[in-house]
Amino acid sequence: MKPETNDIGLSRRKMLLGLGAVGVASAGAGLGTTAYFNDTETFEGNTLTAGTLDMSVTANLVAADEYWSGQTDIPLSATADGQGVTAGLVVDDVKPGDWAIVCFDIEVGDNPGYVQVRTENFTETGGANPEPEQAVEGDADNDADLGEFLLASVWQSYDESGDKTGLSVLDPVFNNAPDATANASGITYSAPDVDGVASPDAHYTNAREADAQLNAGYLIKDNNGDLLAINDAANEGVYSFCLLLEIPFQVGNVIQGDTLSFDLVFETEQVRHNDDPFNNSASVNSAGN
């Protein structure tokens, strides 16, 4: 007879089965720990669209003397919008006393913009040299003089009067910079040359001085000389400035046969985040499509 014993007999097969059961239980407990609290929110349909800045410029000959008004290419009315205007102001046989006012209506769409005006290809020639001009300049000389004697001043408004009296408000920078000596001696820029006779007490900007202001780029400004943001809350819609071209009666024969030509270019840049439009901070003057 065998003695009693408390030992539990486990065969190798039984032990392996038992360990397997423990492993399954442990795996089940591990799956339970991955069920974290969670939540999801969604903002759908986000879209960013670039804005637009689009300018158009319309030129109109709003008033002129009888001769200029009778030219076949007058009255000028043309809009530059995406394409350049190649048929500009063309007048032959200009004489002392002739004058014309061309107004440029600038429209900047969708966003406010600063506008810069530039001249390009400013060219003068002596042209024909008849005897009356030789008597003034000398037989051997045939200088190009029209740019010196053709007056060109910029005005900020025109009231459709049909003559030069409709001009008001000289541009504050354009007409006050050309002649420092005249300004220092108290000569002022007064009313336009209504009678066609230049006053000896006033300086009138000539075409060469105008080109000197414009060829490096001239930014349009307000009455205080500050940059003008066209189409912002204070200056909505169309902005106009008018160019008065005239030859005073006193000029005489010195310009006979001379010619002058130039291109006028308008550019715009956005106002927002633009402290130095057209990078003009270093230029003398802080002055389609």
Rank of each mutant, 00 (worst) to 15 (best):
E120F: 06
L61W: 04
A63T: 12
S161V: 09
K95R: 10
A177R: 10
I187V: 04
G166Q: 11
G217I: 09
I101D: 00
T123Y: 11
V136Q: 14
P200R: 11
Y204Q: 10
G97V: 02
V238Q: 13
L48G: 00
N121F: 03
P178Y: 08
A87L: 10
E133F: 06
P178H: 08
I8K: 14
T205H: 03
Y67G: 05
V108I: 14
V271A: 03
A152D: 04
G126N: 10
S283F: 00
P75F: 13
A25Q: 05
P277K: 02
N111L: 06
I8N: 08
I255E: 00
L219P: 01
S161N: 12
N175A: 00
P178C: 09
A210G: 13
P178D: 03
T119D: 03
L48A: 10
L19R: 07
F174E: 03
T49E: 10
F266R: 09
K2E: 14
S26Y: 12
Q270V: 15
T86F: 05
K95V: 11
A29H: 04
D139F: 09
E107C: 01
L19M: 09
E269R: 15
D195M: 07
E133S: 12
F104R: 08
A198M: 08
N111I: 05
D98M: 12
D263W: 11
N142Q: 07
I74V: 09
D92A: 09
G237C: 07
D92N: 15
I230N: 00
K2G: 09
T34W: 12
A184E: 04
V173W: 07
A216T: 14
D141F: 15
A64Y: 06
Y158T: 04
F241D: 02
L89V: 12
R208Y: 04
D110M: 01
G237Y: 09
I247W: 04
V24M: 15
R13S: 04
T79P: 01
G23S: 15
G23W: 11
L48D: 03
D93N: 15
D93T: 13
S157I: 05
A21I: 14
K95N: 13
L244P: 04
T123I: 13
L10H: 11
T52R: 12
A210V: 03
K164R: 15
A27F: 15
T52P: 00
L31S: 08
G51R: 10
D222H: 07
P132D: 09
V94K: 00
N175W: 00
N253R: 08
S161A: 14
T79M: 04
M15P: 01
F174K: 03
D92V: 07
Y218I: 01
A140L: 15
E120N: 15
C242D: 09
I220Y: 02
T259D: 09
W68S: 00
N206F: 06
T34P: 01
F149V: 07
V154N: 05
T181E: 13
D54Y: 08
I101G: 00
